[in-house]
Nucleic acid binder design. Structure first.
Lengths: 241, 241
DNA sequence: CGTAGACTTGACGGCACTCAAACAAGGTGG
DNA sequence: CCACCTTGTTTGAGTGCCGTCAAGTCTACG
């Protein structure tokens, strides 16, 4: 049920003991199905639990008082969407499902117990939130310095790499990308019309294709070169503590 | 010596025990003075310690393979610039001093000892890294949805608020902003020429003035309204664990 | 007093936004 | 079964914010 999470955690930190993994998975509720567009956490709220995406896609949305808003993170199977709500308490953004999802929750008292008894697992949870931060920084770099085409290519490379980690994508094969162009454009901070033009350009260069929910990277090397993609920031290596 | 840090930590979490505070401050090295422009940590490196800004300003710079780069965070007295290097290991960005600085360090083994013996202090350190992430998200929102003028006003509000937390700024009084326009523009992801025009606009509206290193917010309410600034994301309230 | 660096101002161009309409696809009810 | 509606995608035209280039001004400092 939380196999994607386990795949991520064991890939990232092979030293995580079975006991720690069990402590985490036993703290998780049974998965609940929610339709696309469901608000999982509200900006300004004080959640009493953290949510794990078991399957499907979710996004974090930051809103201005006047209503303008932007996607500040995308999440896939195996991602905690609001693990930071345990230390931070007040949500600075909302979380919504972008596709139909299954989500499981773990409440703050359980996490607190983990932090008091399992230093290693605590560090792994901390690490998960830091990977989110690392992705934020890469998005900031993209927004400031990459052209819209490069930015688009970069996000595709990032998502493809993250999907590979949890075996939801394989080089040379199509993968599921159940978003609208509007949603992807929002994550890039560009208009959907402009994204559409960028996608047409990537298609004409035979780098990337996307019809409906099925997407395919046609030339991974060239796409990564265009995006100047370096996967280091996604932290996928095993690291001794 | 690390009084700004203590001011931040005790403001943020009044439940932090004197023993925990002492454990942290005793783990810190004596402050070292470094000139402006010093590379504190290199992108791609694996630091064995974390750096605290005791005084002065520092920045995190993310670079693309082709040399283009952007500032992804600004740091002031009392900020850890690379606390995340303990869980993440490989730096995804560089850190450099923007002004003359005093910095202190704490090595990873000491932090590890803290995580194994002091769950509460660990949570506070985790929180510090999450506030950085929260700021990243606000910068993403600014980059995507605020105009250059609003974006500029917002960063000024943010820095002013963060300086107030460590008593380096007071409403109605000038404060030290020892950066060049180029450096501030880089943090905003806009050109220095355009920032210059935005600063002229803020000056003409009698919202903000900045000559040399001395800056002053002339009308805090109006500046915050223009920026749509909401300080929640900076997490300054005391919170019970 | 001269030089270097930072700041200021102007002109021009382009990337990406906005507005608008056409097209495609899927669902619904008459 | 097919109008009809809704939602998403595609394409076009016009605009504007902001970047780039360039020149000029100010300030600090040797």
């Amino acid at each position: 049920m939380s196999s994607y999470l386990i795949r991520r955690l064991t890939l990232r930190d092979s030293t995580l003991s079975p006991a720690s993994l069990q402590a985490l998975t036993q703290g998780l509720s049974a998965p609940v199905s929610i339709p696309a567009g469901t608000v999982i956490v509200e900006q300004g709220s004080r959640p009493g639990l953290c949510t794990l995406v078991v399957s499907g896609w979710a996004a974090r949305l930051s809103a201005l008082p006047d209503g303008r808003r932007s996607t500040v993170a995308l999440h896939i199977s195996g991602d905690f969407v609001d693990l930071h709500s345990y230390p931070i308490k007040v949500m600075d953004h909302s979380v919504i499902s972008l596709s139909a999802c299954a989500v499981a929750t773990i409440d703050h008292p359980t996490i607190r117990r983990i932090t008091e008894t399992d230093a290693h697992l605590t560090r792994v949870l901390w690490l998960q939130t830091l990977v989110d931060a690392s992705i934020h920084r890469q998005w900031l770099l993209s927004a400031a310095r990459r052209s819209a085409l490069e930015h688009t290519a970069h996000l595709i490379c990032e998502l493809f790499t993250r999907l590979r980690v949890v075996s939801l994508a394989t080089p040379g094969k199509p993968f599921q990308l159940p978003l609208s162009q509007q949603q992807l454009a929002d994550a890039l901070g560009i208009s959907s019309e402009h994204l559409n033009r960028m996608l047409a350009e990537l298609r004409s260069r035979r780098l990337f294709e996307w019809r409906g929910v099925e997407a395919q990277v046609l030339d991974l090397e060239a796409l990564q070169a265009l995006a100047q993609f370096d996967a280091t920031y996604l932290v996928m290596q095993d690291e001794p503590r």
